[in-house]
Design a protein around this nucleic acid. Structure first.
Lengths: 243, 243
DNA sequence: CGCCGCAAATTGATATACTAGTATGGTCAA
DNA sequence: TTGACCATACTAGTATATCAATTTGCGGCG
């Protein structure tokens, strides 16, 4: 990279009309598609921690060029899902043991602040949204559809951030939740766990509906405290998945 | 993108030896350099909100190809510093007014959890690190070097996250702090503000040194509460910088 | 004045080639 | 046998040229 004194040069020169359009809908690019495919594969452990990846091979498998694959891998590396070693290789990142408790701390801190605000300003319509999600979860739990259940679980927490008016917090929560969820995938499915989750969601919903700020906080903390994976146990069963 | 049944195909086939090496030092790539240059220019308002950017022009100005510039812009867009409109253009993102209070909430929640843990487990050596930073800040405040002062300010907060054992939280804090800092750059420099910051840092340091968890929390909240920019006032003075 | 359509501009994606670090595996010497 | 060393293959990083897809802006037409 050549030296250049002022990188902000040409500030006024071009000064052409800038896109006045607002947000718009970002269309789904090839890079997005590749990203989500890899994201799902990693989260579902179809690509286990430590697995070697290659831009070239992935590009061939997906029938695309290296460019979008590369952009997808870069996004994954920012999210801590892959580790890129320049000029050497790329691997699905092993789960850093220390990251799990840290992720739990972040999640508790942010979900606490969010649910408290939600309990303060929620409208009746907002509560109805939560009810709709809970209803779907009940049905999915009865069917035993764990995958769809998990999607609705995410929807529940996302809805709370939207009610609170903190949509950006959900973005942060998603990234930290990934590490937790990845570890939880390694645990054995507990019988009746989905029913417990639904019950906890109902408690949170009720506290929000009654505008009980402190109660909503407690219900959320209880909910989050129940899902901490036993890292030590996992580490002994899957030693090569952690580092 | 062609359809493909199993994106995780070839899981066992290649199974070649994966980079056994640990972390290593990621060397600084061209894309990294471009990213940091643009990052600094945007944060310093040398590239003001709303300014149009072009991959091609930036590439020419920096003397590099479009590839690394493109990667840098993608990273910036994830951080909310630029908005990319496909097939239309890229602009330095205007500051979303709603993002400021949200960023403050996130920062308070995470810094609270962090400083509390730091106050619990800090060693004498850790406190010395904080003292060293504070000493440098005193000197820089006396010199009136606001730029270097700000760097040490970041170092102070980063050090607390390291003491708490939550390095990942600092990564999150950096991204949310950017929006706040960008808005603060628009405020007039307040006389003696740096001295106030130093005093507040000292209060935080003292609480940590005495292992006063609750006191550390209060000191941090007081510190963070003092730096909330007056969004409304800014919006009237720089209407085209917000949206 | 308003609508339509075309040309220009810009990002998205592809293909290819080359560069520069990195790991591998084998050779050779202690 | 063990250790260091070196040639080689391999991979991500960058460069470049080109085309595709889409939006924007402008000019002309009704």
């Amino acid at each position: 990279m050549r030296e250049r004194s002022a990188s902000a040069a040409g500030l006024s020169e071009g000064a052409r009309t800038l896109p006045t359009r607002l947000p718009k809908v970002r269309r789904v690019t090839t890079a997005d598609a590749v990203f989500h495919r890899l994201y799902d594969d990693i989260l579902a452990l179809r690509m286990p921690p430590g697995m070697a990846l290659q831009e070239k091979k992935i590009a061939e498998q997906f029938g695309v060029s290296r460019t979008p694959v590369r952009e997808a891998l870069l996004r994954l590396s920012e999210g801590g899902l892959v580790d890129i070693y320049p000029q050497a290789g790329t691997v699905v990142s092993r789960i850093p043991v220390s990251a799990i408790p840290e992720a739990v701390v972040v999640r508790k801190a942010l979900e606490a602040a969010t649910v408290e605000r939600a309990a303060r300003i929620a409208t009746d319509h907002d509560v109805e949204r939560l009810d709709a999600i809970i209803a779907r979860q009940k049905a999915l739990a009865a069917l035993g559809d764990t995958s769809s259940f998990h999607e609705e679980d995410e929807a529940f927490h996302e809805a709370i951030t939207q009610i609170a008016g903190y949509p950006g917090i959900w973005t942060i929560l998603k990234t930290v939740k990934v590490q937790i969820d990845r570890a939880r995938r390694l645990t054995l499915p507990v019988l009746g766990r989905m029913d417990h989750v639904v019950q906890e969601h109902i408690l949170i919903r009720n506290a929000i509906a009654k505008r009980e700020v402190e109660g909503a906080h407690r219900a959320m903390m209880h909910h989050l405290g129940a899902v901490i994976p036993d890292v030590e146990e996992l580490r002994t069963r899957h030693p090569d998945y952690f580092c």
